[in-house]
Amino acid sequence: MPPKIEINDLTKVFVKKTGSVTALQNISMTIEDGEFVCLVGPSGCGKTTLLRILAGLEKHSAGNFKINAEQSKRPLQSMVFQEKGILPWMTVEDNVAFGLAMRKAPKDIIAKQTAYYLEKTGLTQFASLYPSELSGGMKQRVSIARAFANDPEILLMDEPFAALDEQNKFILQEELLSIWAETKKTVLFITHSIDEALMLSDRILLMSAQPGQIIQEVRIDRPRPRKIEEIRKDPELAAQFVDIWQHLQKEVQKSRT
């Protein structure tokens, strides 16, 4: 099977009044089908830009990328936006159904998929509420349910849990993993939290500060569900943690000078 995502020498330059910024420089990577990959890097290194390019929301300046489709009627990708990304004028149910409704899926399929992912994310009893009546964690569940219900080839997530408190973050990470394990979707997940990356991913890609480049790759071969206490206790993972942390530290310092 070909890799799910292939990125070759992708470069993105933003031109502004004050000059140009190379946000991404010669990014290359491949992500296998069903893999959960976390992209970790200091803020401003171009993580969001990379994701937006893959999501078709931004055009790259050079290089190319390919998302290999398995089924032609599936959408290529769906993005899990931050909390603010759910539509305030639609009920929870309509938000979850959004992608399917946009591509005019049959009514019964929409109803079935929506009900399934509402159930999966524990939102069934809130289906007819509006987002303004939900907590931050609940809103993020809606965003995740919407992306999975759309049944895309790959899922793109841009720091979806960054705004949540620790407890909610853990709960949502577990829920995400359980849905992921069931659907076997390919996920590219951005975070600046090493803990989060160690909890979630098969593979961590480390990015350098501007211009963003992939500088290191760490494979995490641990059975899931992982426990944060276990991760912290495990000497091998701890060594990896320190390793990644030092890399980030170096990058942050480099970008300061």
């Binding site: 937006r52 999501a55 990708q77 993005m79 931050q82 990304g85 539509l87 959004f98 591509r103 759309n150």
Partner: peptide, 20 residues
């Protein structure tokens, strides 16, 4: 961000008008 959502989920012009 709502324009991005509409774009990302493939809203057509008329869907964009009525839903966003």
């Amino acid at each position: 961000i709502y324009l991005d959502v509409a774009n990302n989920y493939g809203a057509s012009k008329s869907q964009f008008f009525f839903k966003i």
